[in-house]
């Protein structure tokens, strides 16, 4: 199987602080990978590098064989819009928009017409069990509901890769389970690759395998072999 995402020798420092000290990862198409490790080990930084949010100081990131770490911001923006989806711990919904509009935004950004975008957004809200909540604003949703809206928004453009950083970090076990279960069902259905950063082993257990990051390196005991 081909690697959809591949990173070689990633390094990234913030001032004196070396967040990544040479990371190699390879993620196959359709694979669900959990990135785990202690706090401050560089998980989020790795995710941002893989997703073309942050440019690494050294090393290369390839998406479908194209080096994305050398693209300019505009091109990476286009890539993020078209091929990647994002889910974070919280606060990622636009507070001024209703749930349905939040989901429709990426479609509109991609140039879809309003009516079509709204229809598809509504469809996704139903799939995530949010029918009846379409007109709510983020402040009027529970944490779990907001995360499900975020997942709908991340998946509505049918991205090749879904990046999630602590998607269940602010939820209780039951809500976390609901969110993960839905997310996994949906990505399995569409064959989306998922990279999920988490420190919660039950969330990580939904993945096909896990990558342990420790002190800016992939833990060697298992590493990529697993």
């Amino acid at each position: 199987m081909t690697a959809v995402l591949e990173a070689r020798g990633l390094k990234k420092s913030f001032g004196r602080n070396e967040a990544l000290r040479g990371i190699d990862v390879s993620i196959r198409r359709g694979e669900i990978v959990a990135i785990m490790g202690p706090s401050g080990s560089g998980k989020s930084t790795l995710l941002h590098c893989l997703a073309g949010v942050t440019v690494p100081d050294a090393g290369i990131v390839r998406f479908n064989g194209t080096a994305i770490s050398t693209l300019d911001e505009t091109a990476r923006g286009r890539l993020r819009l078209g091929d990647f989806g994002f889910v974070f711990q919280f606060g990622q919904l636009l507070p001024e928009l209703t749930a349905i509009d939040n989901v429709a935004v990426p479609l509109l950004l991609a140039g879809e017409r309003r009516a079509a975008a709204s229809a598809r957004a509504a469809e996704w809200l139903v799939r995530l069990g949010l029918d009846g909540k379409a007109q709510r604003r983020p402040q009027e949703l529970s944490g779990g509901e907001a995360q499900r809206v975020a997942i709908a928004r991340a998946l509505v453009t049918k991205p090749a890769v879904l990046f999630a950083d602590e998607p269940t970090g602010s939820l209780d076990s039951l809500a976390a389970e609901g969110v993960m279960k839905l997310m996994i069902e949906l990505v399995r259905e569409s064959g989306t690759t998922v990279v999920v950063v988490t420190h919660d082993s039950r969330t990580a257990a939904y993945a096909d395998r896990d990558i342990i990051v420790r002190d800016g390196r992939v833990s060697v005991a298992l590493g990529e072999a697993a």
């Binding site: 996994i184 082993s201 257990a205 939904y206 993945a207 096909d208 342990i212 833990s219 005991a221 298992l222």
Partner: peptide, 24 residues
């Protein structure tokens, strides 16, 4: 000791993944 823990961890994770799959 680190290797020991990592191996144990991998084993536990594998078990968790299996259980999670069945649970679904």
């Amino acid at each position: 000791a680190q290797r020991l823990l990592d191996l144990q961890r991998a084993c536990h994770m594998e078990q968790m993944r299996a259980l999670t799959r069945q649970k679904q």
